[in-house]
Nucleic acid binder design. Structure first.
Lengths: 244, 244
DNA sequence: GTGATACATATCATCCTACAACTTGCGTCG
DNA sequence: CGACGCAAGTTGTAGGATGATATGTATCAC
C-alpha cells in the first residue's frame, strides 16, 4: 500500500519530464518519423539540465522504440509501427472519453478470452478464480480490497486461457482502467462507491465451471458493459445490445 | 529500410544489456516483487560498468513500472500488475509456440474490431483501406512491400474503429508477428514465400463497404486463421471451426 | 529510563568533466 | 582525379562531486 501511494503521487523526476516532453512532441507530429532530434548538448541547454538527464530520457524513448540513436550521428524518430512497447499516457486516462475507449478494448479482449478459458480451464484455474470470487463478496468489505479481488478475478480468468500474452494484455488494460477510475473519482466524488456486482461475476464463474464458452462470453460481455455503466460510461458496442 | 536493417542488427548497448539482465532476473523470479535491488554502486562493480550506465538501465526498468526507485533507500521490484508498459521479449518471438499465442491474440482483437469498423467506418477510412488493398495485389510484387501493405491494411481497419487504443494494440501485435515470422524464416527457409491471399482481404473489404459487422467479423476471423495456417501455425480457436 | 534532538551513514538524483568510439566532410597529397 | 588522412561533431562510457532524502544511532535533557 505504501508502494501504491508512492506510485500514484510519483515525484516527477527530471529525466521523466524530458522524456514526456519529447514523447509528446513526437506524438503530436512536430517531430516526424525520420527526423533528427537535437543533440544531447542542445537538449541539455534547452531544458536547463545536465546531459546525463537527457541521456536517461533518451534511453527510455529508445527502449520503447520511439527513437533510435546512432553513435556519431544523432538520434532519429522511428515510425509508430516500430514501437517495441505499448505505453499509455497517464494524463490521457483522465479523459472520460479515453476511459470509454479502454472499456471497449477490454470488452473485446475479455469476452472472447472468457470463451477460451471456458474451453481450456483446469481445476487449478477454477480454484484460483473461485478464491478471488470469495474475496470479493466475502467478509472484507474494505473497498480497495474488493477492487483488488475484482481485478484478480479477471486476471485469473485470463490466465486460464493458457495464453500468456492474453494474460499480459488483459492485466494491463484492467490496470489502466483502475487508474482511470481512480482519477475520475478524485475530480468527481459522486461515484464515491464503485459497487461491485457479485451476481455478474458468479454467472461468469458458473459458465466457466460448466465449460460453456458461449455462456462465458455472453456473461463476461454483460458484466463489462454493466461495470462500465456503473462508472458512468455507456458502451456503444455493436454486439452488446443487438447481437443474439 | 536503412532503419529496418539497423533496428534488426542493433548493437547491444551497455545499458541495454544491464537492463536485460535485471529484467530477466525479475521475470524468472530470482527477484520477487518487493525485493530490493543491489545499490547502483554494487551493480556498477558487478557488471564492470560505470554507475552512469547502471542508472540508464534502471531508468528503463523504472519507466516500464518494473521497479521503483526511492531516493535515500534503494530500488524495489514492483508487482507485475503495476507495469506501465507492455513489452515483448524479442527472443521469445523465436519460439513457434509463442507465435501461435500471438496469432490467437490477434484473432481475438481483430475479428471483433472488424465488426466495429464495419459499423463506424466513413468514406475516408474506406479509401485508405482500399489503397492498401491495391498496393497488395498491385504491380509491386516485391515481397517486403506486400507485407508492408498487408500490415497497413490491418492497421487502417483498426483505425476505422475510431478507437485509438484498439489501433495501438492491433498495430503492436501485428508488428510482433511480423518479427516472429521474420525469425522463423531465417531458421527454416521453407516458408521462403509467405503468400498473401488477396481474396480473403477483398472479402473483408467488401463487408466493410457493405457496413455488415457480422460478415466483417467472420471474414476477418477466416483470414487470420488462414494466415496462421500459411506460416505453419494452426489455431485451436474455439470459434474458428465450431461456431455458428 | 525515556524521549527528543542532532549527527552520521547510506542511497538515489543531478551535475560536471573527460575521454573513447564512430561518422561525416573536407582538405591534402600522390 | 582519386585515395588517404585528418579534424570536427555526436553519441557512448567512465569517474567523481555535490545535493536531497531516509534510516539508524548516539547524545543529551528531563
Amino acid at each position: 500500500m505504501k508502494q501504491r501511494l508512492a506510485a500514484i503521487g510519483t515525484v516527477e523526476t527530471l529525466p521523466h519530464r524530458v522524456a514526456a516532453f519529447l514523447s509528446r512532441e513526437i506524438e503530436s507530429g512536430e517531430l516526424n518519423p525520420g527526423a533528427r532530434l537535437p543533440t544531447e548538448q542542445e537538449l541539455s541547454e534547452k531544458f536547463g539540465v545536465s546531459r546525463n538527464v537527457v541521456r536517461e530520457a533518451i534511453a527510455q524513448l529508445r527502449a520503447d522504440g520511439m527513437i533510435e540513436a546512432r553513435q556519431g550521428i544523432g538520434a532519429f524518430v522511428l515510425a509508430p509501427e516500430q514501437r517495441a512497447a505499448i505505453r499509455i499516457d497517464r494524463e490521457a486516462l483522465k479523459d472520460t472519453h479515453n476511459m470509454e475507449r479502454l472499456f471497449e478494448l477490454r470488452c473485446i479482449l475479455e469476452a472472447e478470452s472468457a470463451a477460451l478459458a471456458a474451453a481450456r480451464r483446469n481445476q487449478g484455474h477454477l480454484d484460483s478464480i473461485k478464491a478471488a470470487l470469495d474475496r470479493m463478496g466475502g467478509e472484507e468489505r474494505w473497498e480497495e480490497g474488493s477492487i483488488d479481488a475484482d481485478l484478480l478475478f479477471h486476471r485469473e480468468i485470463a490466465r486460464a486461457t493458457g495464453n500468456s500474452y492474453i494474460h499480459t494484455f488483459i492485466s494491463f488494460v484492467c490496470e489502466q482502467i483502475r487508474h482511470s477510475i481512480h482519477y475520475a473519482r478524485m475530480t468527481n466524488p459522486l461515484h464515491d462507491l464503485v459497487e461491485i456486482n457479485v451476481g455478474e461475476h458468479v454467472r461468469i464463474y458458473d459458465a466457466l465451471v460448466a465449460g460453456d464458452p458461449a455462456a462465458a462470453e455472453a456473461a463476461m460481455r454483460a458484466h463489462i458493459v454493466g461495470a462500465a455503466n456503473r462508472v458512468g460510461v455507456k458502451l456503444p458496442l455493436s454486439k452488446a445490445g443487438g447481437a443474439k
